[in-house]
């Protein structure tokens, strides 16, 4: 799959400035190196800090994800696509999706959608884990990429995902349909975006072009 890069921007919270970054339509070896050399040590540091300050609830629930294993397992599989957010040569977010999976929401049942297998932002971007978080907007940009891919694949913007419990507020706020706990064996809530919500998300209620 040819990698393409699209310009995006993120909010750098400590300085409150807008910085240029890119959304890449793949996860390359450079991203996995960042994951190994930067994300993992930062995550370790954060976990240790949370354990020593009694704030176990601040440990991101994705604390045991291993991106190198995920990427190796799906290497060469057409149904799996990867995306990454890179800012100043450092990887800030990663996403793995499946095309297609099928909608469960009543009005869309059986129609194809892009299923977000995994979406994660770098540990230093999470508010309350390692300070207040560096870059904001990584998750939104990755989710937009999933919806745009859904449009490109003729899935009309439909996407589905299982939210980790501490991210439920984020997906609820985007007006995704909360289909509850019964679609997951792990007690995670399953959310879907129908074409109407996808359009509202991309255009923010008609204010932006797709």
């Amino acid at each position: 799959m040819t990698t393409e890069s699209f310009p995006i921007c993120l909010l750098h919270k400590p300085t409150d400035t807008i910085v240029d970054a890119v959304l890449q339509t793949s996860i390359e070896e450079a991203q996995l190196e960042d994951w190994r050399n930067l994300w993992v040590p930062a995550r370790e540091e954060g976990i240790k800090r949370c354990v020593s300050t009694k704030q176990i609830e601040c440990i991101p629930q994705s604390y045991r994800w291993k991106w190198d294993k995920k990427i190796a397992y799906y290497d060469g599989i057409l149904a799996k696509r990867t995306f990454s957010v890179v800012c100043n040569d450092r990887t800030e977010g990663l996403m793995l999706v499946t095309t297609p999976a099928f909608a469960l929401e009543e009005s869309q049942k059986g129609k194809p959608l892009v299923y977000v297998d995994f979406l994660e932002t770098a540990p230093w971007n999470i508010n309350g884990f390692l300070g207040q978080g560096e870059y904001r907007g990584v998750g939104s940009v990755l989710l937009r990429a999933a919806v745009l891919l859904s449009l490109q694949e003729e899935y009309q913007g439909r996407i589905g995902l299982q939210s980790l419990p501490d991210a439920e507020a984020f997906y609820s706020r985007l007006q995704m349909r909360d289909l509850g706990l019964e679609h997951s064996k792990e007690g995670l809530r399953y959310f879907e975006m129908t074409p109407i919500e996808a359009n509202a998300f991309l255009t923010r209620g008609g204010r932006y072009e797709i």
Partner: peptide, 14 residues
């Protein structure tokens, strides 16, 4: 979107 996201967790997956 970045302002609204506010650094809160966004992870999806199992």
């Amino acid at each position: 979107m970045a302002r609204e996201e506010n650094g809160y967790p966004v992870s999806a997956g199992t």
